[in-house]
Design a protein around this nucleic acid. Sequence first.
DNA 1: TCAATAAATGAACAGTGTTTAGTTATGAGC
DNA 2: GCTCATAACTAAACACTGTTCATTTATTGA
Lengths: 223, 223
Amino acid sequence: MSIKERKELEKSEMRGLILNTAMNLFLDKGFENITIRNIAEKIDYSPATIYLYFKNKDDILFTLRKIGFEKLYEHQVSSLKFDDPLKRLHRQGKTYIKFALENPEYYDLMFIMRGAVARTLDINNCDVGLDSYELLKKNVKECMDEGLFPRTDIDVAAFALWSYVHGIASLIIRGVGIMFPEEGINDIIEGSLNFMLKFDDHKNRNKKKLDLSNKQKTTGENI
Amino acid sequence: MSIKERKELEKSEMRGLILNTAMNLFLDKGFENITIRNIAEKIDYSPATIYLYFKNKDDILFTLRKIGFEKLYEHQVSSLKFDDPLKRLHRQGKTYIKFALENPEYYDLMFIMRGAVARTLDINNCDVGLDSYELLKKNVKECMDEGLFPRTDIDVAAFALWSYVHGIASLIIRGVGIMFPEEGINDIIEGSLNFMLKFDDHKNRNKKKLDLSNKQKTTGENI
DNA sequence: TCAATAAATGAACAGTGTTTAGTTATGAGC
DNA sequence: GCTCATAACTAAACACTGTTCATTTATTGA
């Protein structure tokens, strides 16, 4: 039995070696420029060997994706020691963007690349990948329970918030940053987060003035 | 001269034919599955002929990208006949998402694919592609001028809004919709847009109550 | 030591984007 | 009409890609 265990260990070590090597190469040159032969050469094996440990190239990407989701989840939980759920949510957003910008290749793999999200969230149903989303929903729910949010469908609210941070992250990763002057990207992230949060403060401050002056009622009309 | 003109016309017609055929094939089977040979075969030419009209495959994608930006811009201006800049902005957002979901292959090409945004907004500086963004900035500025927005850096505000709609569009395009129940995606879009807009209404309504009761001042603290 | 199993590979297959040498069509000048 | 330069086009190849499979090499239990 011990020898069988060793075999299995070696097998999983080999898988780890391949995954590690692949990711390092990806980080270095980008997915589209890395081939199975590159990976094999780097670890001094023949290309065919790779296929003894992974069904195909997509299987490697898929596995790395799962690792990415685990990494993201770790980032998320580690920075969630705030009592106020709104603060927690804000921090979660910043952590999310931070993860994306510090691990752009992972983020690409997980959320931008074709077939990334769907394949992970579908096939691997209720497994990793949904964890971070559940965390988000939990925070959203608490915000609603504490009256910090309007009470709407939790999925919709979570989706809206996710969309926002995903939009920021993916645009920056795709190089939209070059449109801005030399001052760091961080100001833009912080600024845009603040803008979104202050947005309605301002709007309502105006509206409040009106309310007080001529008792205008909020109609809730779709703008 | 007339004959030279005809030649040039034929040349541009051939380019158009290639682009059209390529895009139709892309729409049908997705980029990653379409080859130069596919395109050539469809129009009954040899693969080598394609290279007489386009430098390489990326050149085709790049040109289609430019066409996509023109299409987007048309969509944007056509639906901007509102007087209220905030309404205009809201409509622009909805139009943007509509364009993305109705032309997912174009949108992918323009904003999601690797090298999409940067290459288009950089190389083609001050040309197409920036038009829509300038339109957005113009609207943002007007909103600020009319006091509907807090006065912040226009680029930051525009980036925040763009991020939001891009996030929605790209997540849905990547198949996040499957996470939601059977009811249409439209409800989610509308809902999440409304959520973001109502967000602070609600928050401030609460805050207002507090303000009135114990004169608490808005600190502007970073949450 | 020997058969059986596992691990690794060389060589090939079908496909890709791209280049180049060579062929075919076109239009101008005689 | 006939030449001839120019333009349009292509067959064939090149260097790649992901992937498979027959074959070889290494490891193990009897």
